[in-house]
Amino acid sequence: MKKNIGLLLLVFLIMVSFALPNGVSASTGGEGINEKLGLPIVVYGEALTDAQKAKVTKLLEVNQHDQVDEFTVTGQDIANYIGGNPNSNMYSSVKIIHQDNGAGLNIEIVTPDNITEVTKEMYTNALLTAGVENADVLVASSVKVSGHSALTGIYKAYDAKGVALDKERMEVASEELDVATSIGNQEGVDQAQVSELLTEIKKAIAEQNPATKEEIEQIVQEQLQNLNIELSPEDRQRLIDLFDQMRSLNIDFDQVKSQLDELAGGIENLVNDEGFWNSLTSAVRGFFQSIADFFRSVIS
């Protein structure tokens, strides 16, 4: 009987291992120190208590690496990098793993229930605007936060490692995140639609290379119509002003167009799959029900 129970337990563990999803960081552990790309970077929010920091350390799987470079992001950092409030409390934290050129920018929000306003697509859009590429970025918080401080933490990490990001681009990226979360909080517009809108506007800018603010306004209006999104005149103007700022900075959207294409495809699939969450819930419920049925049938 003990042998049968042991066999059943083994079967159960194998089935669970196939069912559970793998995160972005799954392929980065146990490989030693990458001397070419450097150590992974972990940036903790300054407002975390010791207990909260310990929880975030576990969430970000910091102990899977032989060594990491560790920093703390403060309210003064948000003032220095993007002109924010130096009295801000910083909670959201990040782990950054540099990758080879061409690997792309991959974002994973480890604690989606605690990052309440910023989606991974919003992070991706903002970081591409700021000039961050070719990295795996994990975001986590042990308390519910909007998620804005993680962006500043990423900027500080790159700065501390000697990678110069343009200050104006960082400020525009922060404004992009503010606009995205503000629009995404309004009735009738969800976060996935906002991410798709920003991505499609950037792709249109890459293709059309607008030279004036009027051309930016036309692109914004066309994409709003294409995606059937209704915005107030104030929010529409915020988008126009935002992308006109990007145009004036001469950001090369062609350079990241392939990443934008991948991002747009992922967002579109999620937006169009109306039954995604219901199907996922049903699948998980059915999986564990099948395990229970299996045990009952064998034991009986």
Rank of each mutant, 00 (worst) to 15 (best):
D254V: 05
H98S: 14
G275R: 09
A54F: 03
D100E: 15
N134L: 07
R238I: 05
F253G: 07
E46F: 03
L9W: 12
P233G: 09
A26N: 10
M170W: 03
V137Y: 04
A19V: 11
V118E: 00
F71H: 09
E274W: 05
P40V: 10
A192G: 11
E207R: 12
S27E: 13
N63W: 04
D66I: 11
N63P: 03
V139L: 01
N278T: 12
E117P: 00
L224H: 04
A47P: 07
S258K: 15
H98V: 07
V145N: 02
Y44P: 02
V256I: 15
G131W: 09
D273A: 08
F18C: 04
V143C: 07
R285F: 14
G162A: 01
N134V: 07
I14L: 15
N269H: 09
K161F: 07
L105D: 01
Q52F: 10
A160M: 13
N226K: 15
F287C: 07
E268K: 14
Q208H: 06
L198T: 05
F294L: 12
A192W: 03
T212C: 02
L48A: 04
E274H: 12
E217R: 11
V271C: 02
T111E: 03
S258Y: 08
Q245P: 04
G84P: 08
N185A: 15
I78W: 01
R238V: 06
Q255T: 09
N114P: 06
P210S: 08
I229K: 01
P112Y: 06
Y155H: 10
S248A: 11
I251Y: 04
I109M: 11
A292N: 10
I115T: 07
S232N: 09
A173M: 04
Q221L: 10
D166V: 01
Y81H: 11
V137R: 00
I33E: 03
R236N: 14
L231F: 04
T181D: 05
